[in-house]
Nucleic acid binder design. Structure first.
Lengths: 193, 193
DNA sequence: GCTTCCATGTAATAGGTTACATGATTTG
DNA sequence: CAAATCATGTAACCTATTACATGGAAGC
């Protein structure tokens, strides 16, 4: 069956009641943010189905000027389903990076574009790290704390690699020698400009 | 437009002619293996479409006892399309990990299952690393060498974290005190069984 | 003798995203 | 006054996966 949005929702609800809206937030900004995501378009139908299957229930809170808020709770059957789902073997991690694909072809790019991409990636990593720091306190279990620390370790390693090795693909390109008007930031004594 | 299977194929073909079959292999085992993948069901239609668009051409090699082998080559228009595709801004990396999701709920698992998952993950990472070592020589450009080294750095960091910190979630579980018949591998003096 | 490798391709299905529809309230 | 936040939900779309169809040759 593997882990789909339904199971992800059960996971969230196992730690406390929440509405669909709140759950989307939690996936984006919470402790699962760095390795899972889900949009409203998948969460709401998932909750409907979980309700039909008896794995969650909800209480409807009337609100002024907004749709009623449905606060979902996991049922005992839901807990069982969660436990069953995490008792199997996980599928291989899936990592998809357009950044790395593009950088693979750095030789076909203008040098400024290479630098721009690296800069952008480093910024993104830093933002990632900041977000991880933000949710640090939210880790309520040992499992979550472990996963959080794992995320930090990987982000730190990525950041370190990028900052320490970017010079390897910046500076003069050997295959497409282009007239560089600006002096490269890294003096690059090996290039002998 | 972003990077889809079509652009990925153009990327591969920019470094040499190949058949659809060979391209799938290349995605799985080659230098892109750790951050991209594609199945036959997406590659073959993509090549058909690329042909229609004039971005690739193919030569048909008659073979005995097998379908003719179609060896694809990138065209000049294809090269332009590739360059255009890598000139934009990449989408955010997508990382999806069922392993981390499951481990988040380590507290709900039998201790042996936690250990099994970690063992499995470490094995997988080692296999990853071995595969990266295998393709080391295939990196023909600086870009590819950089991406390859990046992959190694991340895998090494993951592996290091897992081996050094697994004890944090192994051993006695504080929330579900279960009668443990087998003595835990890590004596866990803090649990005071 | 069974499995894996070679080699292409299609059809059914799954699983999601994006955009839309609706609309008051709070924040800048 | 505009934008973001709260709040749910649907419909159209996209992209890719899985399984199937076909079949000889080579390795174990």
């Amino acid at each position: 069956m593997a882990i789909d949005v339904r199971i992800m929702c059960l996971g969230l609800l196992s730690e406390g009641d929440a509405s669909g809206y709140e759950m989307q937030k939690a996936f984006k900004e919470g402790p699962f943010g760095h390795f899972l995501e889900a949009s409203y378009g998948s969460i709401y139908p998932a909750l409907t189905r979980l309700t039909d299957e008896g794995l969650v229930t909800y209480a409807e809170l009337a609100q002024e000027g907004r749709p009623d808020k449905k606060v979902y709770s996991i049922t005992e059957a839901g807990r069982q389903a969660l436990i069953e789902a995490i008792s199997g073997n996980p599928l291989d991690d899936k990592y998809r990076s357009e950044f790395l694909f593009m950088i693979s072809f750095a030789d076909l790019m203008a040098p400024e574009h290479v630098s721009r991409l690296i800069d952008w990636k480093i910024e993104q990593m830093k933002a990632n790290k900041a977000r991880l720091d933000d949710v640090q306190g939210e880790a309520s279990t040992r499992g979550q704390a472990f996963v959080h620390a794992y995320g930090r370790a990987v982000v730190d390693a990525s950041l370190k690699f990028l900052t320490e090795n970017r010079a390897l693909i910046e500076g003069a390109s050997p295959s497409i020698p282009e007239a560089s008007e600006k002096a490269p930031q890294t003096p690059a004594s090996m290039a002998g400009e």
